[in-house]
Structures are given as C-alpha cells and as structure tokens.
Simulated assay, not measured.
Amino acid sequence: MAELKSLSLILLFTLLTTTIESRLTTNFYSKSCPRFFDIVRDTISNKQITTPTTAAATIRLFFHDCFPNGCDASILISSTAFNTAERDSSINLSLPGDGFDVIVRAKTAIELACPNTVSCSDIITVATRDLLVTVGGPYYDVYLGRRDSRISKSSLLTDLLPLPSSPISKTIRQFESKGFTIQEMVALSGAHSIGFSHCKEFVNRVAGNNTGYNPRFAQALKQACSNYPKDPTLSVFNDIMTPNRFDNMYYQNIPKGLGLLESDHGLYSDPRTRPFVDLYARDQDLFFKDFARAMQKLSLFGVKTGRRGEIRRRCDAIN
C-alpha cells in the first residue's frame, strides 16, 4: 500500500510538472528583460570570485526555499514584529549570508534594467544553476515565469526539511511525499560535494563509538571542533578532498568513512540508497545527468504563476 501511495504521488507530481512547464518557458524574459541572463551571470561571477563560498550557500538557499512549500522565494522575506518568517526558523538560522546577498545584488541590478519585471524566485533559480556551473557542475535548462509568494511563516516549515541528523528512513519519506524517488534523493544529496557544515551538526556524533567515521578522520574532526563550545561558528568542509569543486568525490568518500554528517553515513547504511551511492561513486557523468534532472524537477516544485503570486520590488519584503 505504501509503495502504491508513493507511486501515485510521483505520477501526480509528473503530471503537475508537465502542466507547469507548459506555463513556464526558457525564454520568458527575452523581450521584457533581454539582459536578464547576462545580469545574473555577471553578478554571480563577481560574487563567487570574491567569496568562493557563494555557490554552496546559494544552492542550499535554493533547496531550503523550494523543498518545503515550493520555489517561491518565501525564504528571502524578512520577519516583522507581527510575523516570524521562514528565514528565521531554527532550521534556517545557519543559512550562510552569501546566498541571500548574491540574490539581493542580482535583484538590484535587474530592477535598474527592467523594473517590476523579474521575480525573485526566478533569480534564485537561475543564480543557482549558473553558480553550480562555475564550480564545475552540470548545466541544465531553467524554465522561467514564476511569481513570488505573498506568505512566509516559520510555522509552515514544521518537520518539512530534512535535518543532518535525521534517520535515513525519515528523509526518504520526506522526499517521497514531495514526489521524488529514492534515486533522486541520493542524487540531490550530491550537493554536499561543496560547502561546509558547522561543528554543531556532527560534533556529538563524532564523539561516539561505531558511528561509521574513519578513525583518523574522526580524530581530525575532534581537533577541528575542539573549541566549538567557545566558537559555535567553527565548521568543516563537507567534502575534504575537493571542497571547492562540484564532482562525485562526495560519493567516493562515504564508503571510506569520510562522510561528514549522519545523513551522509545513512546513505551507505541503508540498502535502499547504498546502490546509488556506489553507482555515482563510479560514474560522475551519470551523477551529473541525474543531479541536473533532479534539480530541474525541484525548481518546478510548487511554482506559483499568474495571480497566485507577485513580482516583488524587493526580495525581502512583500509588496
């Protein structure tokens, strides 16, 4: 029964995605803002050069915006005295500021060229794709024409985003509830190929026994996080081998006990996900192909079009 339910959700998502793609187009701004792609590309390139953590930060921002309730830029809205927005929920407080900053910069430049034309959600989606390419990742087409959400509430995120400490079974259920297969979940986990995680997300686990860590790696992590209680900003690269390049080394690390987070170890300890880890560890081209397809699918999840949303003048505030 559970398998039938999951299959029904996947089929429903496929139908919805097809409908959404018919509304969105890859050349949506070709007439209304012909320099849209150039402006985004120039903005993200300058930011990535000066702040190399921007790519990982923006990919993470994209996921935290899209996965809970759809790609609608609700993650960018600031809280007010009357509302605690998504970005101030406990799970989003650790999102790096570089991701927010690069979107604000792009929006500012686009508003000067094409006022009240381009949505913040479209900017996030294109910036994510372009930044992924700058660090060696795959290119994929982005469909445009999204509108921005008029709602952003921290309370709407309850138990919707996977945690680094979540059991793999729970993470699988969360992805399947959104219409994603187990293989797509494993492919999207490859985003951990770049970026870093704060010590608080793994320090307790690395101190335990039989946690799947390579012993020398565990000792190195303990040393790197030894001052964590006094400095909670301490962090470690998700991929210690090629931390600034998007590749399949993340999957090669996991079987060797070099995965950083509990969720990484979980991918190899569960028989449902382990074959895909091995597959992507052997074949980077296949990983890139599947990652690109899954990212494109995620970018279409819960998209708002027409009157269901708006084009914000500022990404951090509803009009």
Rank of each mutant, 00 (worst) to 15 (best):
A2N: 12
A2Q: 13
K5I: 15
S8Y: 13
L11A: 09
L12P: 00
E21C: 04
L24S: 04
T26A: 10
N27D: 15
N27A: 04
Y29C: 05
S30E: 14
I39K: 00
R41M: 05
D42T: 10
I44Y: 07
I49H: 08
R60H: 11
L61P: 14
D65T: 04
C66P: 06
P68S: 03
N69T: 12
F82Q: 14
I91E: 15
L93Y: 00
S94I: 09
S94G: 08
D98Y: 09
G99E: 08
G99V: 12
V104H: 07
T108M: 01
I110W: 07
E111G: 12
S121V: 09
T125Y: 01
L131W: 14
L132E: 04
R147H: 14
R150F: 13
S155V: 15
L156F: 12
L157H: 11
D159Y: 06
L161N: 02
L163D: 15
P164G: 03
K170I: 15
T171P: 00
T171N: 08
R173A: 11
K178W: 10
I182N: 01
Q183M: 12
L188N: 04
S189Q: 15
G190I: 02
K200C: 01
E201W: 07
E201D: 15
E201R: 07
V203M: 05
V203E: 09
G208T: 02
G208I: 03
N210Y: 02
Y213K: 02
Y213D: 02
P215W: 02
Q219S: 14
Q219I: 00
K222T: 13
S226K: 07
N227R: 12
P229L: 01
K230G: 10
K230L: 11
D231H: 10
P232F: 00
T233N: 06
T233K: 12
V236I: 09
F237A: 14
N238M: 00
N238R: 12
Y251E: 03
N253W: 01
G257N: 06
E262S: 14
G266M: 03
R274K: 13
V277I: 14
D278Y: 06
Q284M: 03
F287A: 03
K289H: 13
V303M: 04
V303D: 07
K304M: 11
G309P: 03
D316T: 12
I318W: 00
N319A: 10
